[in-house]
């Protein structure tokens, strides 16, 4: 693949730029090339905004898919929410009638989508690098980590649309984690939800769901959580009480590749990694 359009969404670039820094560090080390996606807006995230305006969601994402298509590059995503939003829109737009209707809206701004964009998640791209290549680049094995894996709902379900991993007993995140020398102590067969989607809407339920996760991670003997989703990252980092530290996927890989904690901004975590 000759270069991606790097779409970091809005949570990462505005509140968690350090996750963008570690992602770029890892991509650079692996020789994966990318360029910015300056026309990007919020993906009309699939929990709140899409619930208010399904029709606007499809139009706004179709606009970005049409831009990616005209550039002839795949879009690389750092966020599960964005990934679900783009993949489901691309899937809906495979239907010619839907595409026709949406293109009537896009014509208003002089754009058209033909159905040719491809969307990839960072987790998929890292998986494709392959274990031998990645392992050969590990200079600081993360063997003190006993990880609880949390892929997050929106890189797994709906499996038939996202096509990243199995919906029952997924393996991809475990594969990548084990290449860094870390030990995996917890990997749910049916990946759990972090509860983040109800934060600010129903905080009691949101926290109760979060606690279900943390209890099971602790019972498994984990000393850290690993996730490829910035929304889950925020839920774990900010809202746990006396909780476990959490690493975003690119942070774990960057540390294993020898990045210093300062370089990738680990100091910005609320719950510190010892």
């Amino acid at each position: 693949m000759d270069g991606y359009l790097l779409y970091s969404g809005c949570l990462i670039p505005s509140r968690l730029p350090f996750l963008e820094a570690s992602s770029r560090f890892v991509l650079d080390r692996l020789g994966v090339t990318y360029e910015p996606f300056p026309e990007g807006t919020c993906c009309v995230e699939p929990i709140g905004l899409r619930s208010l305006g399904y029709d606007a969601w499809l139009l706004v994402v179709a606009r970005m898919l049409s831009i990616a298509e005209s550039r002839g590059k795949d879009v690389l995503m750092l966020c599960n929410g964005c990934f679900l939003s783009f993949k489901e829109a691309a899937h809906a737009l495979e239907d010619e009638r839907v595409r026709h209707r949406v293109n009537q809206g896009l014509a208003e701004i002089g754009r058209e989508y033909h159905g040719g964009a491809r969307v990839r998640h960072l987790m998929e791209v890292l998986q494709e690098v392959g274990s031998s290549r990645m392992e050969s680049m590990v200079t600081a094995p993360q063997d003190r980590l006993r990880l609880a894996l949390h892929p997050g709902c929106h890189v797994i379900r709906p499996a038939k649309v996202l096509r990243v991993d199995a919906h029952y007993s997924p393996r991809v995140l475990a594969d990548i984690a084990s290449r860094t020398g870390a030990q995996v102590v917890s990997n749910d067969a049916w990946p759990r939800c972090c509860g983040g989607g109800l934060a600010g809407v129903d905080d009691r339920i949101s926290s109760a769901i979060l606690q279900d996760n943390v209890d099971s991670f602790k019972a498994a003997g984990a000393n850290c959580i690993l996730t490829p989703c910035p929304f889950c990252f925020v839920q774990f980092d900010l809202r746990q009480k006396q909780g476990l530290p959490v690493l975003y996927l690119s942070e774990l890989v960057a540390l294993a590749f020898g990045a210093s904690p300062e370089l990738i901004g680990l100091k910005y975590h609320r719950t510190k990694l010892e």
Binding site: T41, L52, G53, Y54, A56, L59, V60, E108, I109
Partner: peptide, 15 residues
């Protein structure tokens, strides 16, 4: 980009 966004969503439920 903002202008495109406004035009796109003005006719939708969100708008």
């Amino acid at each position: 980009t903002m202008e495109e966004l406004r035009r796109l969503i003005s006719s939708t439920r969100l708008g």
